[in-house]
Design a protein around this nucleic acid. Sequence first.
DNA 1: GCCTCCTGTGTAATCGATTGCAGTCGTGTT
DNA 2: AACACGACTGCAATCGATTACACAGGAGGC
Lengths: 339, 339
Amino acid sequence: MQRVTIAQVAERAGVSTATVSRVLSGRGPVSAGVQRKVRKAADELGYQVNSIARALRNSRTDTVGMVVPSISNPFFTSLVESVEHALGREGKELFLCDARSDPEVEARRLATLVARNVDGIIVSPSHGTLSGAAVQETAGRLPLVQLDRFVGGTSTDWVGVDDVAAMRQVMDHLHAGGARSAAFAGSLLTNSSTEQRFAGFRRRAEDLGIAVDPDRILLGDYSVEWGETAAARLIAAGDLPDAIVCADDLIALGVTRACRAHGVDVPGRVQVTGYDNIEFSRLSEPALTTVDQPRERIAAEAVRLLAAAAGEAAGDRGPSAHIALVPTLVIRESTRARA
Amino acid sequence: MQRVTIAQVAERAGVSTATVSRVLSGRGPVSAGVQRKVRKAADELGYQVNSIARALRNSRTDTVGMVVPSISNPFFTSLVESVEHALGREGKELFLCDARSDPEVEARRLATLVARNVDGIIVSPSHGTLSGAAVQETAGRLPLVQLDRFVGGTSTDWVGVDDVAAMRQVMDHLHAGGARSAAFAGSLLTNSSTEQRFAGFRRRAEDLGIAVDPDRILLGDYSVEWGETAAARLIAAGDLPDAIVCADDLIALGVTRACRAHGVDVPGRVQVTGYDNIEFSRLSEPALTTVDQPRERIAAEAVRLLAAAAGEAAGDRGPSAHIALVPTLVIRESTRARA
DNA sequence: GCCTCCTGTGTAATCGATTGCAGTCGTGTT
DNA sequence: AACACGACTGCAATCGATTACACAGGAGGC
């Protein structure tokens, strides 16, 4: 079960390794007869390139690394799928890493990707500040694009959505449905997603005169459990707000579940919104009103930026691009106003 | 932004590359003074090994490839997480590939992994027969373990659960809840999971005298949509069975949703069961009774088998191992009997 | 008839880390 | 004092594919 090398193919075909390489890569002129002989020999031996050797020689791996906070969050999973598709179109592959929402694990993953000579890195940083050093350091060594989330104080390309604009839509919609007070359920303000969404929430609430009691800002993490806890807390406090705005769908799923468990009618008594439009958001009872991120576009832009960065010489990077796409509101049954 | 090589470190430290390598890998005797110099030089230059070059030399990448039918299926996602953890304990990394449930894509992925010189491959084949050739071929070149699903006619190691035993538990539980007739909702019988689960279902139904009308065997794919369609079809046919046994949780989620939408009470009118115990299974209304697979154990066994296979010389593989772990029934609200 | 140019092929260097072999220098032994 | 042995260290080969360069031979131009 020894691996077949180009040398063995060359010997069998009675030519040099250079010729074999030329035939198999389609580069350089080779006469038809020799081509046939080489291909035949390669087939018979079941030759397959050794991409390690090729990568060493070319210093190109045709592989892009991607680091996400959590692969079990369906939003990131679908983002990964979109990125993989986009890369597939360029003949590149994806090396996926899970940072487990831990900046230290994340830093190790980034270092590994550098060591592996990936052609570029797409990262959605776990933490708004603690991820900074590693991301910046990595960006100094390789083309790097931040996706969805970003980390402060770095100067890399970024692609994501305009969270503030999205929250404006959400709040307008809730307001149209009669909400005059609201709560916010998110993760700790340690990542840009929650931060931006919260900022957008707060600003528009003010504009619209929607009351936001400081006690009704509940920050935990992106999980169904946290959503359940947060809602239970609001319910226990007595007096519910007219709406609970969640920083992502997982939290919103937890919130609606807790409401149902406590006999609180959604959207009758309280309206609930999510964010991300994950597949399961339509399955909850009631189906969630949420914000749909244009994942395919985001992924395509990220891949494009990466390709562009790879093209430029390492030194002369232009100013970094910040691309904020506009997400769309998906209206379902967890809110009152109809489109 | 030129990468730092061992040669540059050597020059700066005033030693040979051999010595630098010995210091950094901790192999071979090097005097304390030289060690210090080398480490200092490496730190100052920010040296990091080039794992491509190392892999070429060592013909070991410390990377394991994993191919799953669909990364968007939460069951596989969590299996991937478990495998990643298990590999992490051995200092190995995971290269993840999504086969999009397409044997051709799968074959390409497998070929890529071979070309990349991964140390071993963990695959959950998409198709019970069409995946065969590629899996067998790949197994001839590298250590390979099949996980969860397997493909007929191959002789590789396999780790998964005893689907038949699981279905026995499911059927006994439904029977205890009063079910005397049942339907089965699964994917087409083109993968071992559905096949085995269906076989287990059918056999135990017979034993228990539970009626299974041929019209009530509904085969589509592993998705919520298919579950909805299947349930709608059963409902439209009039006369519902006492239970709907689903081949996985996604289908079951669709089934319960459709039942709710059509005003069919679960578990009052019809009991529903899932399989896999994905996170969302507890979120549906009602929460799903399902089968929990011991993912961590499965992953650990797979990694162990792979390590064992890598240890043996390529030729003298012993007989292949088939490890079927026993899953546990998780009783929730979509069925009637209580534990 | 001679020179140029192009096609086709081989030789050997290269990518960066690792390691077998050999050589150097001390220390300890007899 | 001669020798043996061990601790260090360097040289150079190696992994497998790619490619710059060299060279052979044939076609075409003058």
